[in-house]
C-alpha cells in the first residue's frame, strides 16, 4: 500500500508541473502582454507586481521565481484588488466553498446511494423505474437551470426559503446545497445501482442466500462494499466537478466563495488572481483524485498491483 501511494504521488507531480507551466506562460504570453501594458493600474499594484514577478528579469527567471514563491504558498498580489494578495482571497473563499461542497456531497451520497441500492434490489419494477427516472431528470437539469427554478418556485413564489447569501439568514444554505448536490445524487444513484446489480449476481451472494443469510444482511454486509466501487471511483471526478459547480451555484445565490471570485476575476481580467486560482484548483483536483484512488485501492486490493483506477 505505501508503494502504491508513493507511485500515485509521483504520477501527480508532472500533472501539477504541466498545469503551472501552461497557465503561467499562457497568461504571460497573452496577446498585449497584460503585465507590461501601461494600463490604468494603481501605482502600488504595479510596484507590487514588479517586485513579485521580477519583471526586469528574463521570462524563464521569472518563471522559476514564481515556482519558488508558490511552493511557499505565496501567489503574489491581485491585479484588481489593490492591497490584497491572491493567497488572502483564496483563504477567504475556501472555507465557504468547502462548506457548500461538503453539504452538497453529503446530500448527493445519502440520496444517491440509498436510491441506487433500492433500485438495484428489484430491477425493472417501479421501485427501479422511479428513482432511475428521477436520476435522468437530475442529469438533464444542469445547476444553472435547477438553481433558478428552485429560487423562483421555493424562494419567490412560495417564500419558504431565502434565496441568496451564505450564513446571513437561517436556512439560506439549503437551496444552494440542494442545487449543487442534486446532479451528483443522480450520477451516484446510477453508479450505485449498476455496481450493486453486478455484485448481487455473483456466486458468493448466491452462496450466502443459499445458506439462509437474511436479505438485509446480504446487502449491508456483503454487497455494499463491492457494489460501491464505481461510486468511489467517481468521487475524484465528482469533487473536481463540485468545484466547477461552485462557479454557477455561488453566482446564482451570491455566495462569497472561490467560484464566485474566479468568475469575477475572469470578468475583471484579473490575471494574477486567475493564474493563482487556476493553479490552486489544479492542486485541489489532483489531491482529490489521489485520495479517491487511494480509497479505491484500500477497498479493492486488486487495484493496487494493476493500473491506476481511472474515471
Amino acid at each position: 500500500m505505501p508503494a502504491f501511494i508513493l507511485k500515485r504521488l509521483l504520477q501527480a507531480l508532472p500533472v501539477l508541473l504541466i498545469v503551472i507551466t501552461a497557465s503561467f506562460f499562457m497568461v504571460r504570453l497573452a496577446p498585449g502582454d497584460p503585465f507590461s501594458q501601461e494600463r490604468a493600474l494603481p501605482v502600488e499594484v504595479m510596484k507590487g507586481l514588479r517586485t513579485y514577478y521580477k519583471l526586469d528579469q528574463p521570462l524563464v527567471t521569472q518563471y522559476i521565481e514564481y515556482l519558488k514563491n508558490i511552493a511557499q504558498g505565496d501567489f503574489g498580489p491581485s491585479f484588481k484588488y489593490s492591497g490584497r494578495t491572491v493567497t488572502e482571497i483564496i483563504g477567504a473563499g475556501l472555507p465557504v466553498t468547502f462548506e457548500l461542497g461538503a453539504y452538497a456531497l453529503l446530500i448527493a451520497l445519502l440520496v444517491g446511494i440509498s436510491s441506487g441500492v433500492i433500485a438495484s434490489l428489484r430491477p425493472n419494477t417501479w421501485q427501479d423505474y422511479v428513482p432511475m427516472s428521477l436520476a435522468m431528470i437530475g442529469i438533464c437539469l444542469p445547476s444553472y437551470v435547477l438553481g433558478p427554478l428552485l429560487v423562483l418556485i421555493v424562494g419567490i413564489w412560495l417564500e419558504w426559503l431565502p434565496v441568496s447569501g451564505w450564513g446571513y439568514i437561517p436556512g439560506d444554505k439549503i437551496l444552494p446545497s440542494v442545487t449543487m448536490g442534486f446532479v451528483y445524487a443522480a450520477y451516484i444513484s446510477r453508479l450505485a445501482r449498476g455496481g450493486m446489480l453486478e455484485i448481487l449476481s455473483q456466486d458468493f451472494i448466491r452462496t450466502a442466500r443459499a445458506k439462509g443469510v437474511s436479505e438485509s444482511m446480504i446487502v449491508l454486509r456483503h454487497a455494499l462494499r463491492g457494489g460501491m466501487q464505481p461510486v468511489i471511483s467517481f468521487m475524484g471526478p465528482a469533487l473536481a466537478g463540485l468545484l466547477g459547480g461552485s462557479f454557477v451555484v455561488e453566482t446564482i445565490f451570491q455566495i462569497p466563495g472561490l467560484g464566485r471570485y474566479y468568475v469575477q476575476a475572469a470578468f475583471n481580467r484579473d490575471y494574477t488572481l486567475i493564474l493563482g486560482m487556476t493553479i490552486f484548483f489544479a492542486v485541489l483536483i489532483v489531491v482529490f483524485n489521489l485520495l479517491a484512488d487511494i480509497v479505491a485501492a484500500w477497498m479493492n486490493p486488486r487495484l493496487r498491483s494493476g493500473k491506476s483506477a481511472g474515471g
Binding site: V15, L243, M277, A282
Partner: peptide, 9 residues
C-alpha cells in the same frame, strides 16, 4: 495525465 487536468478551468 491530461485526464487529471482541470479542463473546465
Amino acid at each position: 495525465i491530461l485526464y487529471a487536468l482541470p479542463f473546465t478551468i
